[in-house]
């Protein structure tokens, strides 16, 4: 069907990645025109409707960690197209150029309110923050590091893609790999906090993202297992507004709290202060 080629797939407004570069920006949610400087001061949240713009992992590092610093773990593996999956190699290159990241995850040691932590963040800008072998390996490594060094673990997710299709069964197995490491971390009574941001779905949500001792979400984030479009197709009905959003999950007892971006850092610090057993 040749004529369909030029047609761009319809995208929901919130599915777009926002890279603020003009002086003015339009809020994706309420349509308010926002001055970029002002938006930045508000940590990329809309002053009018509280919509949380998606921001890259590096911004979260600057925002959440002491002095905005992360002592990064190097990637143990290089991403390869093991399955010879169509167009994967090109997609990877594109993602690397666009996101200026090697892969969809950044991890390392940092201080948070003076406390040493292992911090991991997935980045939606890199193939939807999806988890392939390299992301899974980095998350697993970070969990092991936290366990061996007996320091708390904080993982922030922005992974709409779930398990990365292009790496087939290996991506699926990263769910089991990361969850197995978390089982050992739990046995060692090391605190594990997850911060879920928009969007966190499928394979990531159905593994390490859902396994925090405490689960925090940013307001309005889309969080769940199956994407809303697939559910709508399955049940043949429109989903109600707010379905699978942070507040919906809070209401259904699936997460601990919804926290505004400006309060994330202080909330993490307060929690760690209480959970961390001094040895």
């Amino acid at each position: 069907m040749f004529f369909r080629r030029g047609k761009k797939p319809k995208e929901k407004p919130e599915a777009k990645i926002i890279i603020p570069d003009g002086l003015w920006l339009k809020c994706e949610s309420c349509g308010e025109i926002l001055y970029k400087k002002e938006l930045e001061r508000n940590l990329w949240t809309c002053a009018k409707c509280n919509f949380h713009f998606r921001i890259p992992a590096r911004r979260y590092i600057a925002l959440l960690l002491d002095e905005g610093k992360l002592d990064e773990f190097p990637l143990a593996l290089k991403t390869r197209n093991v399955l010879g999956f169509p167009r994967y190699s090109e997609k990877l290159k594109e993602a690397q150029q666009k996101s200026k990241l090697e892969e969809g995850v950044i991890a390392g040691r940092a201080r948070l309110g003076g406390e040493t932590v292992v911090f991991v963040a997935t980045d939606f800008g890199f193939m939807g923050g999806s988890m392939g072998s390299v992301v899974g390996e980095m998350v697993a490594h970070s969990i092991r590091h936290a366990r061996k060094e007996e320091i708390p673990l904080v993982i922030l997710t922005a992974s709409g893609g779930g398990a990365r299709m292009q790496e087939g069964i290996f991506s699926l197995m990263q769910m089991a790999k990361t969850s197995a490491e978390l089982a050992l971390l739990a046995q060692a009574s090391i605190p594990y906090i997850t911060v879920l941001t928009h969007p966190t779905m499928a394979g990531v949500m159905a593994s390490f993202a859902s396994l925090g001792d405490i689960i925090i979400a940013e307001p309005g984030a889309l969080l769940g297992f199956t994407g809303p479009r697939v559910i709508e197709q399955t049940i043949g009905q429109k989903l109600p507004p707010g379905f699978q959003r942070s507040e919906f999950l809070l209401e259904h007892g699936l997460i601990d709290m919804v926290v505004h971006r400006r309060d994330l850092r202080s909330t993490l610090i307060r929690i760690l202060k209480i959970l961390m057993i001094k040895k």
Partner: peptide
């Protein structure tokens, strides 16, 4: 009812 949580829990 937390499909994602139920799956993650079993893996762990």
């Amino acid at each position: 009812r937390g499909q994602a949580e139920a799956i993650a829990r079993n893996l762990k």
